[in-house]
């Protein structure tokens, strides 16, 4: 985000800085990949989002955190074209998002519901290839490659019920990658997994994303996860959902589960985010 970058150049020693409104991109500036322009939304009479302005650049990893009811999932669904904002608009590559797009892949939290239970791991990955019209002859090799990438090479013939939660979520990652998306939207993807599996999948996602330069928008309620994964962390206030603060994450890459989490700037950010969330709840 331009504002964040500017503020940092002026000497933002803490590694994060406060912004209220993101400026709309000027005509001559590079068009941001994803942008929220004055987005507000209601569910019935309840306002869930209020005047959201946010831009996300290509190859950025943006995490959205906030208590439940802050509209973070709704924002993600708007980028994915699964929900249309009541006011304002969301743009992707300069065009208004009017529905799901092939370049944008959505990964759901509830992996057990998001996979086709009657298809094997390979069959589930195949669904994305079939949707994209990949010829039958080319699918097998692609599926093998994708399942290998997420460490499921030996489980291609297993049905979802035969796989653990972590493995099922890996299948969903492979299916999303099969779409060859330029944007990956992830809705609390590791929320239901145990701590060890979660850390393993965090590193896997970072590794895969690094190679493909995919833009990621990642919703989580785990603050440490947000700092560990993100280039930026967007913190939201609830009722109605508003962007409260955007934190720039100044941690070297590749990240490491031990050293990154022990580094002073990680701990400083963690403290800042915790304080911030507590304020929001007070």
């Amino acid at each position: 985000m331009q504002c964040a970058a500017n503020t940092k150049n002026q000497g933002c020693e803490t590694g994060y800085c406060m912004i209220n409104v993101a400026p709309l991109p000027r005509a001559d500036a590079a068009v941001p990949l994803i942008a929220f322009h004055g987005v507000s939304h209601m569910f019935g009479n309840r306002p869930v989002l209020q005047d959201i302005n946010l831009t996300i650049n290509k190859s950025e990893f943006v995490c959205m955190v906030g208590p439940s009811g802050c509209g973070k999932t709704t924002m993600l669904r708007m980028v994915g074209g699964l929900q249309t904002p009541a006011t304002g608009e969301v743009t992707f590559a300069g065009k208004r998002v009017a529905g799901p797009a092939r370049e944008i892949s959505f990964m759901f939290q509830d992996y057990s519901k998001a996979l086709l239970p009657w298809r094997t791991a390979a069959g589930n990955v195949s669904l994305a290839l079939e949707a994209n019209g990949v010829p039958t002859g080319q699918r097998a090799a692609r599926i093998k490659d994708l399942l290998g990438k997420v460490g499921l090479a030996n489980h291609a013939d297993h049905f979802p019920v035969q796989l653990s939660g972590g493995m099922q979520q890996r299948v969903q990652i492979a299916r999303c990658l099969a779409q060859e998306p330029s944007v990956l939207l992830m809705d609390e993807p590791f929320g239901a997994l145990d701590a060890m599996t979660r850390q393993a999948l965090q590193d896997e996602i970072l590794r895969i994303i690094q190679a493909s330069r995919t833009t990621v928008v990642f919703v989580t309620h785990d603050l440490e996860e947000a700092i560990y994964l993100g280039d930026r962390v967007v913190a939201l206030y609830p009722n109605p959902g508003r962007i409260a603060q955007v934190f720039d994450v100044d941690l070297p890459k590749p990240r490491n589960q031990l050293t990154t989490r022990e580094s002073p700037s990680f701990l400083r950010l963690r403290r800042a985010l915790f304080d911030f969330i507590r304020e929001g709840e007070a």
Partner: peptide
């Protein structure tokens, strides 16, 4: 399952493909 409907929307499956690949197997 509503989530599978969203999966098919998100993958931009056509009406016929949704019926053939998701609703009928379901």
């Amino acid at each position: 399952e509503p989530r599978l409907v969203e999966v098919s929307q998100s993958l931009r499956l056509s009406r016929f493909k949704t019926l053939w690949k998701i609703a009928l197997p379901n």
